[in-house]
Design a protein around this nucleic acid. Sequence first.
DNA 1: GGCCAACTTGACGCAATAGTCAACTTGACG
DNA 2: CGTCAAGTTGACTATTGCGTCAAGTTGGCC
Lengths: 204, 204
Amino acid sequence: MSTTTDAIDPAGGSHTTPGATLRADAARNVAQIRSAAIAAFHGRGLSTPLEEIAAAAGVSKATIYNRFGGRQGLIDAVIGELVATEMHAILEKARRAEDPWESIAGYVVDRRDLQFREPAFTDALLMTYPKSRQLVALAEAATAATDDLVQRGHDAGVLRRDFTTGDLYYADVANGLALRDLPTPSREDYERRTRFFLDSLRAH
Amino acid sequence: MSTTTDAIDPAGGSHTTPGATLRADAARNVAQIRSAAIAAFHGRGLSTPLEEIAAAAGVSKATIYNRFGGRQGLIDAVIGELVATEMHAILEKARRAEDPWESIAGYVVDRRDLQFREPAFTDALLMTYPKSRQLVALAEAATAATDDLVQRGHDAGVLRRDFTTGDLYYADVANGLALRDLPTPSREDYERRTRFFLDSLRAH
DNA sequence: GGCCAACTTGACGCAATAGTCAACTTGACG
DNA sequence: CGTCAAGTTGACTATTGCGTCAAGTTGGCC
């Protein structure tokens, strides 16, 4: 089963009539709105005013409501391209890694890297928009995967015993929020801090 | 010199006439607004709507503007009671501690504890309201103190060499934001995470 | 090339919050 | 106990963002 694709619908069927074909102008608008939304969410997070996205797409705010039904629908339509695909790839890679410690370290590094490149990911993590099906699915997949990582780490004795999945989630959110609210740190600083975190996870 | 008090003006001279004596009713309102603001800032952070604070104080919003000149002035008038006093005490304690590691560890633990009890402290840390003189003074004092702590830690070889004051600030902000945006963790979880962080600071 | 369902949109109404002000109320002095 | 400066406030304007809809526009089939 392909965890990467089965919950994603990049085509984003129209809000009103899931099966019907869109008129040419409407299809063009959908494409423009999607790419404007991806750019906007990328830079400003999932709370970017819809009016701004509409302006960037060269349409009116109402068109977004017509085509996507509102912010939730828009998020569902682009979250795959925005973060879900990469996140699933990260989870999958961690799952496949044979060495338990490498699995955890790789996951942490990759996820922090994604978070660095993609501030919107923090919103996803926080589930600011819990009505979005894709976001909920993503969160569930991530929880399941990290539970497994932590379990493996404990079984192999490479992860400090008192470290929990909740601790990992908390650290992820904290890091994402800092990234969002503070000036972007240099890559060097960011990676050093990630190393600190990893060091704090190892079994004594 | 008493770092604890010299930048604080708990009496909060009136907005308009710093020296003049207030009429009895006005003085009563000032007191009520201050305590309502402290309670509100405590629970909801420094962005609590002024109207809400006014309602809690039994006055109209305009009275807050009359007495304090707006949010900035109100913050200046209560931040001391809210966090500055405690923060200065923490900085002072860390400064006095003889053992460099104890100094750092004590500071981290105390500051996290303050942050846990006082969510508004995160707003102060982020300087969401940079116009507030007290907030700026507090931030400067904290920066100077932590610079010193880190320096001492490095000199004594107890703090990992690549750890900087900026890292400490980043970690503090990240923790505060997580505390603000996530459900409050149990004391146990919170303290364990603080221990993780401390462990990651020690020289190898 | 004309019809009409599909589409788009400007203009609304709503809600939350900041900030201002003219008119009213009241504490306190003489 | 009257006067009036000090003080309070309801009502107002402005801003930002969501969500809706009646009225206009247009793609595409005949």
